[in-house]
Each structure stands twice: as C-alpha cells, then as structure tokens.
Nucleic acid binder design. Structure first.
Lengths: 160, 160
DNA sequence: CTTGAATCCATATAATCCCATTGAATGGGG
DNA sequence: CCCCATTCAATGGGATTATATGGATTCAAG
C-alpha cells in the first residue's frame, strides 16, 4: 500500500513539516534506508513528492517516449529533474521545504498531504479540498467502474 | 541519482562560483576524489558541466557515431572535448569560470545550476527559468502519458 | 613592478541535529 | 467500565555544524 488518503500537518517558521507516519512507514518498508523524498512544484498551486523509484520511473518513461527525439527527451528530463529537490528527513520525520516551494504552493501554517498511489501532493488545506472536490466531480462515472473492478480483484484473491 | 534540481549561487568579481553542495557530495561519492568538473559552452546562452566519467561516455558515443557519420562525430568531439575545460574546486567548493565562458552565457552576479542527471547546465537565472518553462510547455502534452507509464513501471517491480 | 590566478582564512547566515514537551492513541489491571 | 501507565506521533526550541561568500596572502609569469 503506497501513499493513500489525506493528512494534515503544521508548517513551522523554519519551514519544517512532518511527513505523515503512514507515508514514512511505507518509504522505509519499500525502498530500504529511504531517509529522503523527492519534491517538485506541481502544475498548479501545489507540490508533488515521491520516492526515488518513482522519479527514476518517470525519467525512464520520458526517455522511452522520446526515443526518436533526443531534444524532447532532454526537455522532459529538464522538466522532471530540473525542478525537483531531494529533501531529507530529520530524526522526527520532518522535511524542510525550500522557500521557493512554499511560495509556489502558497503555503502558510497548515498543509495537507494527499496520497495518490506512487506519489503524493502537498497543498494548503483549501487547495487540497478543492482538488478533492474537482476529482470527485470528474470521476463520478469512472468511480463506479473502478469500484467494481476492485471488488472483483478482492474476491479473486479470496478463497471464500 | 546524480545532478538534480536547480540551485542559485553568486558569481563574484573574480568569476568564482560555488558549486551546489548536493552536486559536490555526488561528485565525491561517485568518482573518488573528484576535485574538479569539466565545463564547456552549450549550444545556447548557457554552459554545461559534468564529471570525467560522463565526458568519457560522450567521447565513446562520438566514436560509435563516427562509423556512420565521421564528420559530424568529429565536429561534436571537437565541440565537447576541445571546448571543455577542467575547473578545479577550491577549499570552499568553488570553481573559477573563464572569461570566455562568462561572456558566452552572459553571466553577471547570479547564476543558476540546473541538474539534468549525468550533467548540468549553468546559466543566468532568467535563462534557466526560460529553459524550464520551455521544457514544461514541451512536455505538458505527454505528461499524463509519462505518469501513466511510470505508474505501470513502479507497479511491475512491486508485488502490491 | 604588475597582473592574474591559486590558496588560505574569516564570518554571517542558513541548514542540520538533538532533546524536551505535548497530546493522542493503546493496552492492560483494578 | 474506568483509570493509569506506555508508546508513538507531532511540535517547539536550542545548540551545533555546514555553507556561501568576501577578503587577504602567496605565487608565478609577463
């Protein structure tokens, strides 16, 4: 189980924010000795984060997609790697957000972590709520289908 | 993972500039006792830099290409190997940029380092921002696809 | 000499580490 | 069923270390 659900946390005047315990335990369980996360600015007023494996997969996917076009591959690498930063966790599981990231997402004293599977988002609680609402509106139709597929998966893996 | 993210640094009147700490620590970790970097002028108003290993790989690639297109390969070799300079780090982790490099990239008092994996770029903050924006615009269309591919990649290596 | 480059040193600032405190959740005993 | 220990997550503050940057000194060459 990867980054799932939404958590709130405080952002102090040193721009430190505690990563949700569930996120941390997954980081430690999957990649061994993962004492850091990769964070980059999103396309809107939020940040996105993931572990090294996902970043590597993104980078690799970009290269695969642009095999015949070296310049496009370079652009993709720049878009992905150029903006991301490696943020290490302190003893209490906190990361320090760079000044530019805080202003990009318009963060103040409280932030929300939104799990999206292999990666997650960081935004103000207001923006996070808005994202969730938008997502609900857009996926109302698909949601039923996803639920049906999930039910079948669970039933298959279940001897009963 | 190698040179990642974007960092700013000052360029003083002796043309000294501090290499980002992350870049330095990677140099020290990978190549043993790397107290220098190779830097060359880029195709636009920026510089490019890397460690010896990447230069060697470039040289090797040029030779591979020479079988198909000897003239192009020679020109590329000349541009990269001939145009590059070995810049050593001082005790504080700074390099001195040659006059010609500074004018090629139009650098003044602040510069940006942009990590691109095995190599990096040096440009004015304005040029760096423009490069990043161009890269984002160019990748925007394929971004969703890249994320989908990355999700699949991560899931494949993952039992869950 | 004068110029430029390389090395060394000093310091303000920012990042990092460490520990104390709080509060919520957990898990028994009474 | 309630109360009290225990644990762990989260937070706040202070001390330590690293970093970035400016300046001084030495050295070699023209």
């Amino acid at each position: 189980m990867r980054f799932v659900s939404t958590y709130d946390a405080g952002l102090d005047d040193k721009r430190r924010v505690t990563l949700p315990a569930d996120f941390r335990s997954w980081l430690k369980a999957e990649g061994d000795a993962q004492d850091h996360v990769r964070v980059w600015p999103g396309d809107g007023d939020w940040l996105e984060g993931a572990d090294d494996r996902f970043i590597a997969a993104l980078s690799q996917s970009a290269e695969d997609l642009a095999q015949d076009d070296p310049e496009a591959a370079e652009a993709a690498t720049l878009a992905i790697l150029g903006g991301s930063r490696k943020l290490s966790l302190d003893g209490a599981g906190r990361i320090v957000l760079p000044e530019t990231f805080v202003s990009h997402a318009g963060l103040s004293d409280r932030v929300s972590f939104v799990g999206l599977g292999p990666y997650f988002r960081i935004a103000t609680p207001e923006v996070a709520a808005r994202m969730a609402q938008t997502a609900r509106d857009r996926t109302a139709a698909t949601k039923a289908k996803i639920f049906a597929m999930a039910r079948r998966k669970v039933r298959e893996g279940d001897p009963e």
